[in-house]
């Protein structure tokens, strides 16, 4: 089974959920390797557990990002901007152009 990556950007002033869901096997190889490379740089242990992540205290209308990777096992994280993890930022740059409103 291939690796499936699902990124949801929610919140923001609009509160609109934008979802990018890709199966790496179905992507052109150049893009799949781009996603794989970015994914390998993401520090999944360095973030709060989903459901416990919160924006900076007092902040409002910042984006919330939920990332879920299904492959051998499941990995997920929830973060709010500003993004401190450069690996995650690269992944967002690759996936967000594919996101569609939910």
């Amino acid at each position: 089974m291939g690796t499936r990556v699902r990124l949801t950007r929610s919140g923001g002033f609009a509160g609109l959920s934008m979802v990018a869901s890709v199966d790496l096997d179905e992507l052109p190889e150049s893009e799949a390797s781009q996603v794989r490379a970015a994914l390998s740089q993401v520090n999944f242990d360095g973030h709060s557990d989903p459901g416990h992540a919160a924006p900076v205290r007092g902040a409002a209308d910042t984006y919330q990002y939920d990332l879920e990777v299904l492959g051998r096992g499941r990995r997920s994280l929830t973060v709010h901007e500003p993004i401190a993890d450069p690996g995650l930022q690269t992944l967002l740059d690759v996936l967000l152009p594919r996101a569609e409103p939910e």
Binding site: G58, A59, A60, D61, Y63
Partner: peptide, 8 residues
């Protein structure tokens, strides 16, 4: 495509 208040 956004605007926000940073809490500070």
């Amino acid at each position: 495509a956004n605007a926000f208040w940073d809490g500070q």
